[in-house]
Design a protein around this nucleic acid. Structure first.
Length: 337
DNA sequence: ATCATATCCACATGTCACGA
DNA sequence: TCGTGACATGTGGATATGAT
């Protein structure tokens, strides 16, 4: 980093003023003549010049970087959302990615460092937790960032005082329970994810509620991590019990995939011996054998929407915006009777 | 020691003068 | 009239310098 090539170097090499060089490289409203333009571009190419993005951000008074914080990029739920958000951000700037690896306290660290790096906005993807202390600290950090001109959008529960894309987890799970009882399933168990994760909790509650409306109940709720291995482990724990339920609801798809693997390892057939359903509708499910029943969330739309909320100028009256996203039950082979 | 002011970074942009 | 250069100003924050 000893001697970076600056715009001044390019201007000197091309024999033009700094202003002209600037107008060429950033494509300003004022058009520079073709001859000068070519001289500047040639000088920039010869010197290997690239604009200093930090200096540009300062001079322009705005940065083009949007931060995106997810729990785990290997989880299709997050990668689909991230890819969709990127399509919205890309024409305007760049994406800075942060991964919490399911450690909520890392969210706070990312908000702080992204703010220090002058990002224009931050998209936080992931469930809130029951840790009200952390939620409060995060909300405060977001408020400080926003008061400094930053923008924040959240995909998850509406608890941070920011624009929010809010999946209707409870009603989605409720409708799933209703659909499964409608298929004739009679005994149910739930692979419930972590107890402190609101998304997991809402889905469990919604499912139990939906069963109750049909005069049924979940016989067991087994809690585990919100990932594939968590589903695998929880399913094994469930199958170690004396009574095997006819239908298992895993609170997200990757857990359901783990649960299917556990069933298979025990020689159980899905759905003949045990039915399994998930939640989210990650893309790979369509190629799973058997195909998995789930609650479809429009993940790409959610990612695009969250990115738009961060980039839009319009935030009418300073009121935060909450976009509710409805889940849609998709019945596939894994719960067939 | 504490505080206020100046300078610097790399750039964007507007005003104005000037040559063709 | 067009396109340019010179110049000034501003941008946020870190760091240096000077004043008290």
């Amino acid at each position: 980093m000893g001697s970076q090539i600056t715009l001044a170097d390019v201007a000197e090499r091309a024999g033009v003023s700094l202003a002209t060089a600037s107008r060429v490289v950033n494509g300003s409203e004022r058009v520079v003549g073709k001859r000068f333009r070519e001289r500047v571009l040639a000088a920039a190419a010869e010197l290997g010049y690239t604009a200093n993005a930090f200096a540009q951000a300062v001079a322009r008074g705005r940065s083009d970087v949007v931060g995106l914080v997810v729990a785990d990029i290997q989880d299709p739920y997050f990668s689909v959302i991230a890819a969709a958000a990127l399509t919205v951000v890309e024409p305007h700037g760049e994406l800075m990615l942060g991964t919490t690896l399911h450690r909520p306290e890392q969210e706070l660290r990312y908000v702080t460092t992204m703010r220090a790096r002058q990002v224009r906005g931050i998209v936080l993807v992931g469930s809130r937790t029951t840790d009200t202390g952390h939620t409060k600290r995060l909300a405060e950090a977001i408020a400080e960032f926003v008061s400094g001109g930053g923008r924040v959008a959240v995909i998850g529960q509406d608890k941070l005082g920011a624009d929010t894309v809010l999946p209707q987890n409870r009603s989605g799970a409720r409708e799933l329970a209703s659909a499964l009882t409608g298929l004739g399933h009679r005994s149910f168990a739930v692979l419930g994810g972590p107890k402190n994760l609101l998304t997991a909790r809402d889905r469990v509650d919604g499912f139990v509620d939906g069963l109750a409306k049909r005069g049924r109940r979940a016989e067991v709720v087994v809690h585990s991590e919100f990932v594939r291995d968590g589903g695998y482990r929880a399913m094994n724990e469930l199958l170690d019990r004396p009574r095997r339920p006819g239908c298992v609801f895993a609170v997200n798809d990757v857990m359901a995939i783990g649960a299917m693997a556990a069933a298979r390892d025990r020689g159980l057939r899905v759905p003949e011996d045990i039915a399994i359903a998930g939640f989210d509708d990650i893309p790979s499910l369509r190629d799973l054998a058997p195909t998995l029943t789930t609650v479809r969330l429009p993940l790409e739309e959610m990612g695009r929407k969250a990115a738009s909320l961060v980039l839009d100028d319009a935030r009418e009256g300073g009121r935060k915006r909450v976009v509710r996203i409805k889940g849609e039950v998709v019945l596939r082979d894994s719960t067939r009777r």
